[in-house]
Structure formats: structure tokens, C-alpha cells
Design a protein around this nucleic acid. Structure first.
Lengths: 149, 149
DNA sequence: CTTGCGTCTGTAGTTGCTACAGACGCTAGC
DNA sequence: GCTAGCGTCTGTAGCAACTACAGACGCAAG
């Protein structure tokens, strides 16, 4: 049954169980043998989760969004707030990555192996300009800055 | 002594020990009491690591770069290859994030709490357009696509 | 000789999964 | 009825790159 849910939603089986453990997907009833028996509501909910993930929302925020899933103005408002926060986070990351892109593009462009005495990339990494006290980049392989609240 | 190295390089003490465990920073000699005693070479090496990290290089790549730190044409060439790979990874992430940014910007712009019956964000997450078979975004909170060797 | 900061090791937590191992459920065919 | 073989179960460990303890110890000043 979990295999069918996986096929219907495109979410990995192990990931489905992980979402259940994480409290995002409610534990389904079990067959006599202990297998998970899902229904349409689970399909809808998991689809919601997958789409939210594809927009980059952290699981904690998706939990919030799921709880807000009423159609009153207030939940709409909070949904928007969460989304704007996510949008801001995405823009932050883009900005950080653009700084990296620029630096890497310059370095790789300056590097012409065989035509220079010293590798300008290694030189830059060994003794380089310190780009302001720090505060800039941190998003390529590094973890994101934690969002407050 | 590790506190001083930390102050000199701006790298957290726990992170320094982590780099040592990870094999990036060679284990320094110890005092009689067992405290780490660093020298100038460690400062240089750790600075190199920090700068590489600030460009988003994964630790594994930094290990490679450190090993390449000779000034012949061949190591320069490999350094450039690693850097180009990193540049490509950064650009990939930017592209993915731009897709997210666009989608989030549209959704949040369409959402005007109190003026609509239904929240367009929640609607989009509940029953939305499927954006191609999949293959697109995955970089905001999600992990990056693994780079093949 | 004590105070108190610095440091030590070892382990666990973070985020969002993924990948097992080893045991069991379930169904089709004989 | 019985077995083959796939699907599923739980529980645990791993990934990246740190960060954050706990509890023990080093070391220099007063």
C-alpha cells in the first residue's frame, strides 16, 4: 500500500515513512498484518507536502501550512507570511550565490594553466583579500543562516 | 593554543577540531598536557580552508586543492577544473533558486488576504500544475543534486 | 594551592532524506 | 496446504558541515 502511495505521489517510500515520523503525514490505519493502509486524504496531503518541498519550504513550515489549511482570511494571511519569509530566504541565497559565482568566474577566467608561473586560484586562496568583516556568502555547500522565529 | 588559532583565522574552535578529524588540517604536536600546539603553517592552511569554504567548495574538494598546492602547470590545471565544477554547481543552484523565487513571487503577489474567498497559495499547493515530469528545482532547503565525480 | 579559564575527548543534535539488515505480510502458483 | 518471491515492517546508520554539550583535565596567576 505504501508502494502505491509512493507511485501516486512520486515520493520515495522511505521518505513517506520519514514524513510520518516527522509528524507531517498522519499515521494511517494498519492491516491485520501491520501494513500501512492509506486513503485519498493521504494522497492529497502528501501531494501538498511534495509541492511545498518543491518550493523549498522547510518541513517545519510545511507543518505550519498544513495546519493552516483552512480557508479563512487569517490562515490565508499566515500562509502568505510564511511564503514571504521563504521568498526572502530564497532571495538571500541567490544573492549569496551570485557573490560566489562572480568570484569563481573571475578566478577561473584568470587561470590559464601553462601560461603562468603561479596559479592565480591557489594564490587567491593562499593569500587573498578579506571581503569585509564577514557577513556575506554562505550557501553553496554551506548551510543556510538559521531563520529567526 | 587552539583558541589563538581560532582568533587568528576566524574559524570556530569546534570547527578546527572537526577539520582535523576530517583530515583537512594535519594533527599538530601536543604539549606535555595534551594541548594542541599550532604553528604558522597551520594558520596558513586553515586560512586556505576558510577561504575555500567561503567560495562554497565542499570539504572533499578542499582536500584535493590542498594536495594540489604545488605550483606546476598540472596542479594549476586540476585546480581550475575543480573550480569550474564548483562554478557550474553554483550556477545550477542559482538557476534552481530562480525558479523557486519566480513561483513564490507569483503566489505571494496573487494572495491578498481578506479579499479572496480562497487562498491562492494553499490552492496552488493543494491542486497545482505539475511542472514537467520533474527534473527542475531542488536547492532551497533541499539538498543539492550530487555531483558525479 | 586554589581559582578559573582554556582545552581535552566523546557523543549527540541539526536538515531532509537515503540505505541498509533482518524479520515479517501477502498473494500466486502448484 | 505450502512455498516462492515480492512488498513491507522496524530500527539503525550514513550523508554534509558543522555546532553544542558533558565531564574531565591543563595551566598560569595570585
Amino acid at each position: 500500500m505504501i508502494g502505491r502511495l509512493s507511485a501516486l505521489t512520486g515520493v520515495n517510500i522511505e521518505t513517506i515513512r520519514y514524513y510520518e515520523r516527522a509528524g507531517l503525514l498522519p499515521p494511517p490505519p494498519r492491516t491485520r498484518g501491520g501494513l500501512r493502509a492509506y486513503d485519498e486524504e493521504h494522497v492529497r496531503r502528501l501531494t501538498f507536502i511534495r509541492r511545498s518541498r518543491s518550493l523549498g519550504f522547510p518541513l517545519a513550515d510545511i507543518g505550519t501550512l498544513l495546519r493552516l489549511d483552512g480557508s479563512d482570511a487569517q490562515s490565508c494571511e499566515r500562509t502568505k507570511a510564511v511564503s514571504l519569509r521563504q521568498l526572502a530566504a530564497v532571495r538571500d541565497k541567490i544573492a549569496s550565490l551570485r557573490v560566489l559565482e562572480q568570484a569563481l568566474a573571475e578566478l577561473t577566467a584568470a587561470c590559464r594553466p601553462g601560461r603562468q608561473e603561479r596559479c592565480p586560484i591557489i594564490d587567491a586562496l593562499t593569500s587573498a583579500p578579506e571581503p569585509a568583516p564577514d557577513q556575506t556568502a554562505r550557501a553553496a555547500t554551506g548551510r543556510a543562516t538559521r531563520r529567526g522565529s
